[in-house]
Amino acid sequence: MARILVVDDDPAIRQLLTDVLEMDGYEVSVAVDGLAAVREVQAAGPDFVILDVMMPGLDGFGVLTAIRGLPGEPVPVLMLTAAAEADASTRAWAGGVDYYLAKPFTADAVLDLIDGVLAGQVPVVER
C-alpha cells in the first residue's frame, strides 16, 4: 500500500484528500505546516507528497527545497495552490516540483494523477 503525505493548513482540504485517498486504498498521513511536513518526509518516507503552497511558517516552497535536499530517490511532489501570483508556478517548477494544480481542484483530478504516477503511467519530471 502506497503512503501519501498530505500537507495543508486547511482542515477541510486535508480531510477531503484524506477521505478520497483512503477510499482508494492509500495509507495517508497529514501535516498541518511546513516544518511538520519535512519531519514526516524524513521519518516516514512517503511515496507521494501533496503540498500546499501558502502555509504559516515554512511555506510550500521551503518544504519543497528541504525535500529536494534530502538524500535518496526523490519523492514525487504535487503542489496545490490558490496563489494568484503569476510567478508561483514558475517558482514551483524551478524548485523541483513534479506536478502543479491550482485551487479549486477536483478530488478526482488529484486521485487520477497519483494513481497514474504510482502505477508508472504518468511520468515524473526528470531532474
Rank of each mutant, 00 (worst) to 15 (best):
G34V: 01
D33S: 13
V97G: 07
A83C: 13
V75T: 11
P74V: 10
V122D: 04
L113Q: 13
T90M: 11
K103W: 10
I67K: 10
D10V: 14
I50G: 00
L70K: 04
V41T: 04
D59F: 08
G34E: 00
Q42T: 14
L64K: 07
A31H: 08
D98F: 05
V110P: 00
R127E: 13
V53T: 08
G95W: 10
E73H: 03
A102T: 15
Y100D: 05
F105N: 12
L35G: 05
D47G: 04
E126M: 03
F61G: 05
S29Y: 02
V110R: 00
F105P: 06
A43D: 07
P123G: 02
V124T: 12
G25P: 15
M55L: 04
P71S: 11
L35E: 08
A37R: 01
P104K: 05
V28L: 05
D52S: 03
A12D: 08
G72M: 13
I114M: 12
L113E: 13
V49C: 03
R68V: 02
E126G: 10
V122N: 00
I67A: 09
V49L: 11
L64H: 09
M54C: 14
E22M: 07
G95N: 13
V6F: 09
W93S: 08
L80P: 00
A12W: 02
A36P: 06
G62M: 14
A31K: 04
R91V: 07
V32L: 12
P76I: 04
D8W: 08
G96W: 04
I50C: 04
L51I: 01
G57K: 15
L58F: 14
V63I: 13
M54F: 05
D8E: 10
R68P: 01
V32K: 12
A119V: 10
Y100S: 03
T81R: 01
D87N: 14
